[in-house]
Nucleic acid binder design. Structure first.
Lengths: 188, 188
DNA sequence: GATTTTTAGTATCGAGTCGATACATTTATC
DNA sequence: GATAAATGTATCGACTCGATACTAAAAATC
């Protein structure tokens, strides 16, 4: 019953946002999925900007994602570069054009408009509730959490205030630790 | 910034659920959108079970919805009946087959599983937060609220404890007032 | 009461999504 | 060195979805 109610709200939210995204995206020749890929690339870190990471994030097959990326590359919205160490993997990044376009469409004006009308306190509550729900969903289904370093068990604070990832064994910048990582594992 | 964060969570939630719905639906030959239509029909009232209402609910075009409905009818998951008064409109209802299938897939087991692991209090908070967000989204964008009679300004309580809709000028049953209505207008 | 407009819904088309399958190449394992 | 696993691409077919054009019934206008 409770999860049924939850689902009612979620489905409705989902559909409203997706429809809106489609409408605004279509004016620029972009599909919802393509915007999601661009958006992900704008918030992930340098270890998580590969086609495989996108695949895991979106939960689609690698073939499907490969196509999407190909289209976005042809549109000059993202660019692909080969990894210097592993010749199988490639890294994706937004072009200035892609970045600019994304800024116009995401977050959807519709959502911003609604969010702005809510009291600050309510907004925080909603935000927190959503975060909890995402975490619960990912955890109880054994999916990757794609969190930021702050909440990751691999993250070590060094004495000088810097950050160090104990998985990739490399120092991280202030910018790094605020981005989503495909290797993220919740502490505890 | 806040609405950006909000969007991050929502998009992730959306994509996870949609992918899951696709995966489980595909085993029964159903697309996400088709499940959404079936689900809507299971929660709407008798004034809101028309193709047009579905169109408004999903935010798609009537042509698109018409196709979806046609497929579902061919699969014997829903049935169409003509309105007795207005020959243009038709009413949709789930067949036993459709009802049974829907029960298996919605709400998604994935969500139920996650929801079950949360404390009751948290669950209620999340549920409430989502509801607020949906309302805010619909209100600030002038969309139909699709709420239940309890929160509708057309709903009148009669002295004997029954319900009466002042828009369609008809008495409503206990079952009626718990279903979504396309004519719903928030009180106040 | 006849004409026009609006409303509910259908038919068809083309661009695009997405999973499935098959494949190529590089790296890891034994 | 042979085999297995990992990363990514190519191609196919079923399906989505908006756009456009259409039918028929109801409502509005005159």
């Amino acid at each position: 019953m409770t999860s049924g109610n939850l689902y009612n709200h979620l489905e409705r939210l989902s559909e409203i946002l997706r429809t809106d995204l489609r409408k605004s995206g279509i004016e620029h020749g972009l599909q919802p999925v393509q915007l999601e890929v661009l958006h992900y690339l704008s918030v992930c870190n340098r270890y998580s900007d590969t086609p495989l990471a996108v695949t895991e994030y979106l939960g689609q097959t690698k073939g499907t994602v490969s196509q999407t990326i190909k289209v976005l590359e042809q549109k000059r919205l993202l660019q692909k570069r080969n990894d210097t160490e592993d010749k199988r993997v490639s890294h994706l990044s937004l072009t200035p054009r892609g970045s600019k376009l994304l800024d116009q469409l995401v977050p959807p004006p519709m959502l911003t408009k609604a969010s702005d009308k809510l009291p600050e306190r309510t907004r925080k509550q909603i935000n927190q509730a959503l975060q909890q729900l995402v975490m619960a969903l990912l955890q109880s289904n054994g999916m990757k959490s794609f969190g930021v370093c702050h909440t990751c068990r691999y993250n070590l604070h060094s004495k000088d205030g810097g950050y160090f990832c104990n998985l990739v064994k490399q120092a991280l910048t202030e910018d790094d630790v605020e981005r989503l990582c495909r290797e993220h594992e919740t502490v505890g």
